[in-house]
Design a binder for these strands. Structure first.
Lengths: 223, 223
DNA sequence: CGGTCTATTGAACGACCGTTGAAGTCTAAG
DNA sequence: CTTAGACTTCAACGGTCGTTCAATAGACCG
């Protein structure tokens, strides 16, 4: 099974758990946690309401299960590419552009080549990352270990930068990514249709250069 | 009355409408629209439940009223500073750094010198800006006219950049700002306490340089 | 004083929420 | 076939939701 099967389980019959995860992923991404009811989810999934509690133990457990499902795969792919660019550059540290590429590219590849489930997942991830209520705990649980590896690599790639600048830079970096994944459609409106927020190729061509230049600018701040 | 009175109406007695707007602003910012009930809001405000419908006509109208209240003031201040930097640089276009400064500084000044209401408002604004459900309509209604002025100024400041690059750059810019305003506390965790997301001075020192360098990098993309 | 308009109160409405438990169905092993 | 266990169905629970309305209070003016 390819990395890009997309989790949509084409042809194969989805289990009840998978139907629920798919439906919850889609609806949570659109309306958020409190804006989505279990009745909407089970109707979308075509299963009985009580099965949420049977399989997951409650609404909040279902929510976390949605985030966990693809989170591990994203971490693996990001770390794989980070090691790759670090190995290719050894014994020198990997370039800033390569590190941010290892961070962004797995997401962009999944968006471009995988099914709509990944689309919803990333939109939901953007929602969670910006949420004062969920962000700290849920993002940390899944991504802290991986993110710390990337921050170390960024520090190595910009040895003259202060650690504070790298942490703030990572904050800006993930903010730029997050809004791009949220699928608000606002970019389309502002540009009068010239830019389309679902255009992954256009995003890929610009996000890396913007962020790498921003980080270098931070590193040379005032100097 | 100073711009920085903060809207908290110190000493002066707040009207019922203001009490409701303040309470709604605070709670919507923390838990989102669907995560906040009118009963929580009226309890926080110390007024009767039915007064929401009397004064605002419903929950959704109250939500929009919260966003409108400070939005106009933010627009005015941003445009005032944009004209200022454009006039100072005339007949040449204002520098990229000056334009992004005119965009960020009003927010940072309100955060630093005004009351907690602005804090909640910006956190809520970050929530709305990232929401697939609310982002397009509500952000556009309040901010489109102002944002278009800033995008024009950015294009003038970077004449070699393609319009698409400026639109995408604005998207990254506002994403970096948005996550910084969301108050998720995640930066504090990741940096082990080295950085504090409520430290406006630290944010001010880094957000402008990062974004300006990113935009310049975009403008020279591939060249 | 009486009258009018605005503001506030308290109670109630129907709708939907997440969760539960008992009963039923299906499958596979004894 | 019988039994055990996993899965599914159905109906209902208590609670909270946004909204409504008649009744009340207060302010202002003639």
């Amino acid at each position: 099974m390819s990395l890009y099967e997309g989790g949509e389980m084409a042809r194969a019959k989805r289990t009840t758990k998978e139907k629920l995860l798919d439906a919850a992923e889609k609806l949570f991404a659109r309306k958020g946690y409190h804006g989505t009811s279990l009745r909407q989810i089970t109707r979308e999934a075509g299963v009985d309401l009580a099965l949420v509690n049977y399989h997951f133990g409650g609404k909040e457990k279902l929510f976390e299960a949605v985030l966990d499902r693809r989170g591990a795969m994203l971490n693996e792919e990001r770390l794989r590419r980070l090691e790759e660019v670090c190995r290719a550059a050894a014994p020198r540290p990997a370039a800033t552009e390569a590190v941010v590429g290892a961070f962004f590219d797995p997401i962009l590849d999944f968006l471009e080549h995988a099914g709509p489930g990944w689309h919803s997942y990333f939109s939901l991830l953007a929602w969670v990352n910006n949420s004062p209520q969920w962000g700290k705990r849920l993002m940390g649980k899944t991504f802290n270990a991986t993110v710390k590896r990337f921050i170390e690599a960024l520090m190595d790639s910009l040895p003259k930068a202060a650690p504070e600048d790298i942490y703030w830079g990572y904050n800006f970096l993930t903010g730029a990514l997050t809004l791009s994944l949220a699928e608000t459609g606002r970019l389309d409106v502002l540009s009068g249709g010239l830019c389309r927020s679902v255009d992954v190729a256009a995003l890929r061509a610009r996000l890396g250069p913007f962020v790498a230049a921003g980080l270098r600018g931070l590193a040379q701040r005032g100097g």
